[in-house]
Write a protein that binds this DNA or RNA. Structure first.
Length: 300
DNA sequence: TCACGTCAAGCAGAT
DNA sequence: ATCTGCTTGACGTGA
């Protein structure tokens, strides 16, 4: 098991998701922003490795407007060496990487323009991971998408669309259960029809399920991750008390986390902690998981 | 320096 | 019709 957190480090003074307004787009601005973001990403990854956090989600905002028609700049070539250097660091320290496109990526959309935009966005995400020269265990996680009044049909449309995607995207794409529409069971059905691995979100599952226990869930979903996919990826959070349902907790509840570790003892997977205070909770979780003998041995 | 209106993009449900 | 939340604030104008 590797443990990590998404996108933002709250300790270091930099962000790898700096952006700017479309109205102020220029190649200079883009180059400057991406340069900053890649440098910061390198810093975050060094921090993470130092603290034994070997799983990290790279922000979708790494390259501003990468999939927008306004962007004609060949950032892939211009930053090739920097991407490769970050990728080398990742590989040398055995770090696992994921990415999570935003809600605007809807593979099963009824609107063809939305689908085409989604394809461009997915291609961008795959390019980032390809430029880092990472293997296919570096994944891009998305939700199934919209329901459009007919869930079965919308799931079928997801599968049909998935089949037609570029191989560069397909080999990295995984589908995640959401908290309202498409549960673990739906994702497993999609996986059975398409071969796409299922990324399990523990928190979403708590509020949207068909009565499967954590054990049942892991039994089923771990089988959807095949050879080159690496270990299953799992998202973990819990409800913030006194807040609207769905709010992520501000810091990890170690009691609950220990219980989760206990429930999943026979399974190995990589764990992404979606918690407000980011690496601070990840550090606590690593300590607990390490005492529990759940982490991989780190020799580097 | 700071307040605050707004920011590329979709969807569903609440108001 | 408009607003909210989602993986998440922060850009940038105006004072």
């Amino acid at each position: 098991m590797k443990i990590g957190y998404p996108c933002i480090n709250t300790t270091l003074g930099c962000r790898s998701s700096r952006t700017f307004r479309l109205k102020s787009y220029s190649e200079e601005r883009l180059m400057e922003t991406v340069e900053n973001n890649l440098t910061c990403l390198g810093k975050i990854l060094r921090f993470n490795v130092k603290h034994n956090m070997l799983f990290f989600r790279i922000t979708s905002d790494l390259v501003s407007f990468a999939s927008h028609p306004i962007c004609k700049f060949g950032w892939q070539e211009y930053f090739r060496e920097q991407f490769r250097a970050v990728g080398d660091f990742v590989k040398n320290h055995d770090v696992r990487i994921s990415m999570h496109p935003s809600q605007f990526t809807v593979v099963n959309s009824l609107n063809n323009r939305v689908f085409q935009n989604s394809v461009r966005e997915l291609v961008y995400h795959a390019q980032v991971l390809d430029l880092m020269e990472l293997d296919t265990s570096a994944k891009i996680q998305i939700h199934v998408g919209g329901v459009y009044g007919d869930k079965e049909k919308s799931m079928r449309r997801f599968v049909e669309r998935f089949e037609k995607l570029d191989e560069a995207v397909k080999r990295r794409l995984v589908v995640e259960n959401d908290d309202r529409y498409f549960s673990l069971r739906d994702c497993l059905q999609i996986s059975a029809e398409s071969g796409i691995p299922v990324l399990f979100d523990v928190f979403h599952h708590e509020v949207n399920n068909f009565g499967e226990t954590i054990w049942d869930s892991f039994m089923l979903l771990t089988k959807t991750w095949k050879g080159g996919d690496g270990l299953p990826m799992v998202d973990y959070s819990s409800q913030r008390k006194g807040e609207r349902e769905g709010q992520h907790i501000e810091t990890i509840n170690l009691g609950n986390f220990k219980k989760f570790l206990e429930e999943t003892k026979p399974f190995d997977f990589d764990l992404m902690l979606e918690i407000k205070d980011k690496e601070k909770s990840a550090l606590k979780a690593i300590k607990v998981a390490s005492q529990d003998g759940r982490l991989i041995n780190v020799t580097k």
